[in-house]
Design a protein around this nucleic acid. Structure first.
Lengths: 109, 109
DNA sequence: TCCATATGAAACCAAAAGGTATCTCTTATA
DNA sequence: TATAAGAGATACCTTTTGGTTTCATATGGA
């Protein structure tokens, strides 16, 4: 099971966000990702592991290759989490609106 | 200026996510937050600093008190970031749909 | 079969992060 | 005007993280 903090932790690093942006254009093997960075294969692999743990990418095998692609699940999790707080702002604004309206009606008394 | 990775980094820790959930119910001073955790004041303060750096909370002064509240900006940033990838999925699904349709029309030839 | 290539994993290191103890500063209030 | 309460900052310690080097495994092709 993916923890929400694992997803956010995976997103909390510039290199990993860049990798996601690469994968948004095309699926890639680790080798292809390595070509885009000044970093060791093993270093990139660690980032990929964290992205996978966060549910943001998935891997399919093709012979001796491992092809990495974006995983909708992780993004959906983030989207839903942030939507909870959107609701929070809506409620707060409504409460403020109601308060103002009731004060206005008090003025009329 | 707030970097998106600072926002995600701030969200990548269970304690900080809990603090946000507390602040969603009511604004709090650090002292009030400390009462909810088995942690030093200085420890909580560090978390608050990171949340502020990520644009997720803001602080207003009231006498000797500092009152912390949620900051819409940070949440908006996350929401917009994830929306970019929503668009990505939509495009991908449309491409798939177009592919299927063109193959179907080929069959008719 | 032999070798080049794509991969995974472990050991190791320096830097960053989570946390505490301690000190200083400011502001209510007795 | 003392003094207690709320806050911030620094030094310090331990754990985690970002990164490399190195070794082992699997697969495609000459």
């Amino acid at each position: 099971m993916v923890q929400i903090t694992d997803t956010f932790k995976a997103l909390g690093d510039p290199t990993r966000v860049q990798i996601l942006s690469l994968l948004a254009h095309e699926d890639m093997t680790i080798g292809q990702v390595v070509d885009q960075f000044d970093m060791t294969r093993a270093g990139v692999k660690k980032h990929m592991n964290l992205l996978q743990k966060g549910g943001l990418i998935r891997v399919r095998a093709n012979g001796r290759e491992r092809i990495n692609s974006l995983n909708p699940e992780g993004f959906k999790t983030v989207s839903e989490w942030v939507r909870y707080y959107d609701q929070f702002w809506d409620d707060k604004l409504n409460a403020l609106k109601n308060l103002i309206e009731s004060e206005t009606s008090n003025d009329k008394q």
